[in-house]
Nucleic acid binder design. Structure first.
Lengths: 340, 340
DNA sequence: AAAAACTATGCAAACGATTGCAGAACATAT
DNA sequence: ATATGTTCTGCAATCGTTTGCATAGTTTTT
């Protein structure tokens, strides 16, 4: 059925002009080069015949694919879906398609998908998987590939990224807890090789300072990954220690869920006996038991801003790197309460 | 820095052969055509120079893009992330890239992304947005585009799809509820223009029959979309009616969440006073308050099976359509209990 | 009215691969 | 030794665009 696709030449023949003329008409940039009347005839013929440009031929010639690659650790992690949505919305509006790949936090997977993206000649990359020191970032810089980091950033200075302001977040959390009378606040830290893990921890430290509280090293435990399980382990360590605490602040919502579990298993009521706060405000955080007090990161905006910056970079390679920190909000729900 | 890309000709020159020879060596299918020794030299030269095929040139010539388009209603809906993950894993292993697009359940958006996919010459489509009567499906069939439907299916018979067996699911739910002594079971139905909405409703009806119960039309309310809000509205209608019920079965987990809200707002304890069950077992359904009894659909498998079938179809256009129904499981949690 | 300056269109060469065909080189059969 | 058959490799066309250049046609200038 779907006979051969219509090409430039086909519509050229029909109208009785050369294919290059058709090409010029169809490209807004060069439309004005050709007579109004011919242009009109070409346009209507193209529409009538249902002409669709062949993206390969175009890309081959122009060396632009109007495609960007997005790397996330795991599509299934609810925090990343909104980011991709933001990216997709923005890019789509500009005629780009996005190719998503999961790296599962595996460096070799990251490497191989970078390779795949290169083969497909993506015009740029959005990277949500960067570690604080990351080979991929080095490579991209060396090769001059346009890219921007989202949510997580490497330590490099002159690269673009859009992040949540983790320090502000930390401050808000601690001041909220302090206001409720909490002094002995435990911190369940995410992996320190991710900027999110590191910066949030720094934010916690600074928040404590600002609140006039002294962080207690015995009440800080570092996790190897942002997972429920690590959240549980950390909590059981905390519980096993002899230091008392009235609140625990987790590196992200998923870990907070692990905290819930372990506390619950110990017969401790979250939000009553011990306050718990997370970070991210992932979808459905308001449905947990109890609804989780957390720092809302505007994830969709992180995605769309990252996309916007990438577009700028793609269209003008000389544009200077830029890093945007989006203001987070504290969302108070029932997992935090006055200290008893 | 990233000087000009290495082409076939470059490595041909280096080795002192013609580019076509290099092409043959690099393609496993034609490798045997050329002398071992030359092949070896070409291979090592290619590796050394870091040759990467230009996907556009390849696609232009072969008319295969090794790309597939995936349509979902909303990436942000937690039920779809696992599906995409399954698709991606399977396809990636076969050298394909996936382009994802959200249609937000808007027919015109669906249409335009189909257009976009056509332009990009995707080799096939996975459609998770189909309505029971769907123009897109008609179009694809007419054009002979390889595609498979995932989760939702149109009414058409000879098209491939991979679904959850909604009837079995319904049976399990009702028999579980019946066993707990529930007789007056309300049903909050999803949109009937989606197969999921329709089939699940049929499954409910059949489940009731099998359990020897009589469904009460006054206890069935149809929703316009699978949303929390619709779940709330439906519940308030149910509550307003004079018919009593001891359990409510919702068309999916998200709607069940709406049921929770409204019941709660009425001072009714879910799982105690009234049992509620959902469908899908979306991520974190076990974290809700109370943890939700629901039908677990193997979403990742839905994705990977859909991808597998699509690959078959792409590689052999004559392969007959196939529809797979995956067995769901009932996951009993705390939102259901013995009738009081 | 001829020269100069534009305009609008066509021509043809790319882009980087794949692939049918042809011919060279060599092996085998007669 | 000739005819025949096999391998192997190169040639060149092709996929569908884009785009610099040439040219025919038109307008402006003098």
């Amino acid at each position: 059925m779907s006979k051969t696709r219509i090409t430039l030449k086909d519509v050229a023949n029909k109208v009785g002009v050369h294919s290059s003329t058709v090409s010029r008409v169809l490209n807004p940039e060069t439309r004005k080069m050709v007579t109004e009347e011919i242009a009109a005839r070409i346009l209507s013929a193209a529409a009538e015949m249902g002409y669709r440009p062949n993206a390969f031929a175009q890309s081959l010639k122009t060396n632009r694919s109007f495609t960007v690659g997005v790397m996330v650790p795991d599509l299934t992690n609810p925090a990343f879906a909104p980011i991709i949505k933001g990216i997709d919305n923005m890019l789509e509006a500009h005629g780009y398609s996005v190719i998503v790949a999961n790296t599962y936090n595996l460096p070799e997977k990251q490497q191989s998908t970078a390779e795949k993206f290169r083969e497909r000649h993506v015009d740029g990359l959005i990277i949500a998987t960067a570690q604080r020191k990351d080979k991929l970032i080095d490579d991209c810089r060396r090769e001059g590939t346009p890219f921007v980091q989202a949510v997580r950033a490497s330590n490099d200075t002159d690269v673009s990224s859009v992040l949540s302001d983790e320090h502000i977040g930390g401050n808000m959390v601690i001041s909220h807890l302090a206001q409720l009378g909490h002094k002995r606040i435990a911190y369940v830290a995410g992996p320190q090789f991710f900027s999110t893990g590191y910066e949030r921890y720094q934010g916690f430290l600074q928040g404590m300072k600002n609140a006039g509280l002294k962080p207690d090293d015995d009440l800080v435990v570092f996790c190897e990954e942002f997972s429920e399980e690590e959240g549980r382990n950390a909590t059981s360590k905390l519980l096993a220690g002899r230091k008392k605490f009235t609140a625990v602040y987790a590196g992200n919502d998923i870990m907070a869920l692990g905290v819930y579990d372990e506390l619950e298993a110990d017969g401790i009521k979250c939000g009553k006996d011990i306050s718990v706060v997370g970070f991210d405000d992932m979808p459905f955080a308001d449905k947990f038991n109890p609804p989780l007090t957390t720092v809302h990161t505007p994830l969709v905006n992180v995605g769309s801003e990252a996309a916007r910056i990438l577009l700028e970079k793609i269209n003008d390679a000389d544009i200077p790197a830029r890093t945007i920190k989006l203001k987070p909000d504290l969302i108070v729900r029932e997992s935090t309460g006055r200290v008893r």
